[in-house]
Design a protein around this nucleic acid. Structure first.
Length: 770
DNA sequence: CAGTGAGCGAGCTTCCGCTTGACTT
């Protein structure tokens, strides 16, 4: 295949679309993102030589680069069409360098939307590579490398191997750690919410209840009773009625971050899931690009939206808008995330894809619809016994507008503010009191982050980019700095006091609180690393660090600053701190002494060990070796109590005999277990507690595992005892000499002969390790 | 795969931001 013009874009899906818009003389290829990166050896930066970067083409990019080289050689003109932002400009430059392009035959073009007009217009208006922008990217890349690769090794030495630190991830973890500490410090307070119920006779004779809330909360039970008594036999009347028009406007179309948030709130996807499903939709040509910080829609999309809305809902529902991006540091290389074809409100595909698509369709369409019009009513109610003021507020939807299609969800749905239609009332109208209820309400601690709300916070701080939100969230979980899980809450008393028929009744109810679903919690390692970094690298950990270096990158991009000078003024003081910290800082183990062992009088402490958090009685220097016990899942150094620690030392414990052999409960490398006849059986996490589990349940676990093992074995051969055909999580497989082999789909596992198995093992591709 | 927490030393880990596959025990 030969063509005079080679166009290079970043994404293959984009290449496919664009090729259709351009003529036969054009061949459109993708670079699959960056094609070069800093070498991993020696930082990939020659510090002595004015921060000269050492770029290499990673092995998995060699193939793409070779193909592009070949095509570039025969092309008369090479069009570098990577995105119009810092990273895109750098990609263009790397291509220019690696493909050894001739400046004469190279053109740099950009477009923000994938429409024929935009592309043709771009081709008409080429420019050359903007080296200031490229240098801003180099500064960004090198700063991140320096921060990550100079701090991480300190963590390996001072805390634990394989840990990591970085401009983005370390701050993300800090947000989680700090929020958890705020929550631990938080003390819930309660006060009483007072609600009066009035009976209203409607014109047609039917009865309606009007509820109105006292304009303040009452602090104590005693004060509530005094107050309620003062209402006894009072006459209530309306003292004011106010009606005001109001409106609600739709949210802007989706960006990566808002899509992740809404998909989490409305359909319960993790941010990783959302991106994977969106990727599928994008590749199928159903939505525009899913990694974007822009809320902009193309003019043609706006026009189609107007048509679709007019057709489906009527002209009065159309109101097209151009939204402005508010996110800090947004680079707006793409459109907002929207359906490629707005006239398709549904698409084929998996259930997951359909649900996400519908969400995107609704959000996009709603963003171009009329405001919803409301009438808000506020009614004031007073009485003749005291000066207290009750307020009833209601809301009537006069015109639904965009609400016909879509309403953005909120993170905290606790506030049940169901404002309803109020009866028509006039000033000085008398009201018949039915009852007054006082309910004890507790204040809530600041909410724990979900994956999606953490992304929102990062975006707010200008930290990270659309392409990195999901990977960052998984990095901090993979490093075990944080963990996403459900946690049980507790119950507490909530008092209810009523004034009804002249009597006061008090009732104490139990209410559940504090249950957490899929929330992010810090681990001990996360807290210790955060404290360590905060102590030694306070600048990097500052929430404004990214914003302030971004300002300098902008200066470089504008040509006002030389990138090596910017890096130099960062590196010199930074590296001095690195050297000093490596030398003088203590090993950080998060050690905490909780008390004294009543038996031996030795100190009882908790700390991070090689294999995670542990409790210890006595010290290493003591003559007698210290005793150790691992902490249980869900326990942490920061919150565990002395009593809980002492419980841990009750393990291992013998809980009885089964088949005339001892049954022992312990905690090992892989968590709590039952040991019986020198075999191990795992306790079920979240169900079994090793400290309280009884013999009967342990026997159940043993039998369950035995049954499972029996079902696991499909086939074995007497001639070769080491070879087994087994049933696993991903279906049947062959196990031989500790290695597993896939069974071809053409074969039935039950019918495999020994020779078949040998053949499969022979033919299996050699394991490659990365 | 299941009681390890000492210490030595070789060799490895690690960043952020652009993009998709390859491939699952």
């Amino acid at each position: 295949m030969k063509a005079d013009n080679l166009v290079i874009v970043e994404s293959p899906a984009k290449a496919k679309t664009i090729e259709k818009f351009l003529g036969k003389d054009f061949i459109v290829k993708s670079s699959f993102g960056h094609i070069r990166d800093l070498a991993k050896k020696n930082l990939g930066i020659d510090i002595e030589n004015n921060y000269e970067p050492a770029y290499i083409v990673p092995t998995d990019k060699k193939k793409v680069v070779d193909e592009l080289k070949k095509l570039a050689k025969t092309a008369k003109t090479v069009w570098l069409a990577s995105d119009e932002d810092r990273e895109g400009e750098a990609i263009a430059w790397h291509l220019y360098e690696v493909l050894k392009l001739d400046a004469e035959k190279t053109r740099r073009i950009v477009f923000h939307e994938i429409t024929k007009d935009a592309i043709l217009n771009a081709v008409e208006n080429p420019r050359f590579i903007d080296f200031n922008l490229v240098n801003a990217q180099q500064a960004r890349r090198i700063l991140d490398r320096i921060v990550g690769f100079e701090i991480s090794p300190i963590l390996w030495r001072k805390i634990k191997p394989s840990l990591s630190a970085g401009r983005v991830q370390s701050v993300a973890v800090k947000l989680i750690v700090e929020r958890e500490r705020e929550i631990k410090k938080f003390v819930a307070e309660s006060s009483f919410r007072i609600i009066a119920h009035f009976e209203i006779q409607n014109e047609n004779g039917s009865m309606q209840i009007l509820t109105a809330e006292l304009n303040k909360r009452i602090p104590t039970e005693e004060a509530v009773i005094t107050l309620l008594k003062s209402f006894n036999e009072a006459d209530f009347k309306v003292t004011d009625v106010q009606k005001k028009p109001a409106k609600k406007s739709p949210s802007p179309p989706f960006t990566t971050s808002t899509l992740q948030q809404e998909a989490s709130r409305k359909i319960g996807y993790s941010v990783g899931q959302t991106m994977a499903v969106a990727q599928k939709l994008y590749e199928a040509g159903k939505i525009t690009y899913m990694r974007t910080d822009s809320v902009n829609l193309s003019n043609s999309a706006l026009a189609t939206a107007a048509e679709v809305i007019k057709e489906q809902y009527g002209t009065e529902y159309v109101k097209t808008r151009k939204f402005k991006t508010k996110a800090k540091g947004a680079q707006e290389a793409h459109e907002a995330i929207r359906p490629s074809y707005l006239n398709q409100s549904h698409v084929e595909g998996s259930k997951q894809e359909q649900r996400l698509y519908e969400l995107i369709w609704k959000r996009t369409v709603a963003s171009q619809m009329s405001d919803a019009l409301l009438e808000k009513t506020v009614i004031k109610i007073q009485n003749n016994k005291n000066t207290e003021l009750f307020i009833a507020s209601g809301e009537v939807l006069k015109f639904d507008g965009f609400l016909k299609v879509y309403l953005e969800s909120k993170d905290d749905e606790n506030e049940e503010e169901t404002k309803s239609l109020l009866p028509e009332l006039k000033t000085s109208q008398e009201l018949n009191l039915e009852k007054i209820c006082a309910e004890e309400k507790y204040t809530n601690h600041p909410p724990r982050y979900t994956e999606a709300s953490l992304v929102r916070k990062l975006e707010e701080l200008g930290i990270g980019r659309p392409s990195t939100y999901a990977p960052t969230i998984s990095t901090i979980q993979n490093r075990e700095y944080v963990i996403k899980e459900d946690r049980d809450g507790g119950t507490r008393d909530a008092i209810e006091i009523k004034l009804i028929g002249g009597n006061i009744k008090t009732l104490t109810k139990k209410e559940n609180f504090g249950f957490e679903k899929s929330k992010i919690f810090p681990t001990d390692i996360g807290s210790i690393v955060t404290d360590f970094l905060q102590l030694h690298f306070k600048d990097i950990m500052n929430y404004n660090f990214t914003a302030s270096v971004e300002e300098e990158f902008d200066n470089i991009a504008d040509g006002g600053k030389v990138w090596t000078e910017m890096i130099d003024s960062f590196y010199k003081p930074f590296h001095a701190v690195v050297s000093k910290t490596a030398e003088v800082s203590e090993k950080a183990k998060g050690e905490k002494i909780l008390g004294k062992d009543p038996k031996s009088g030795k100190p009882v402490l908790v700390k991070i060990g090689r294999y995670g958090p542990l409790a210890q009685i006595g010290e290493a220097e003591d003559e007698e070796k210290p005793k150790f016990a691992s902490l249980l899942k869900g326990q942490s150094i920061e919150t565990i109590t002395f009593e809980e620690v002492m419980e841990l030392f009750k393990l291992p414990r013998t809980i009885g005999k089964y088949e005339s052999m001892e049954v022992i409960i312990g905690i090992g490398r892989f968590g709590p277990y039952v040991r019986h006849n020198s075999k191990f059986y795992s306790l079920k996490k979240d169900i079994d507690d090793p400290l309280t589990i009884e013999l009967e349940r342990a026997m159940e676990l043993i039998e369950e595992k035995r049954l499972q093992d029996k079902n696991k074995l499909i086939k074995k051969f007497d001639e070769m005892p080491g070879l087994e055909v087994l049933n696993g999580r991903y279906g049947p497989y062959i196990n031989y000499e500790k290695k597993n082999y896939k069974i071809p789909k053409t074969k039935k596992p039950e019918e495999l002969s020994l020779d078949d198995c040998k053949e499969i093992i022979e033919k299996a591709p050699k394991k490659k390790k990365k």
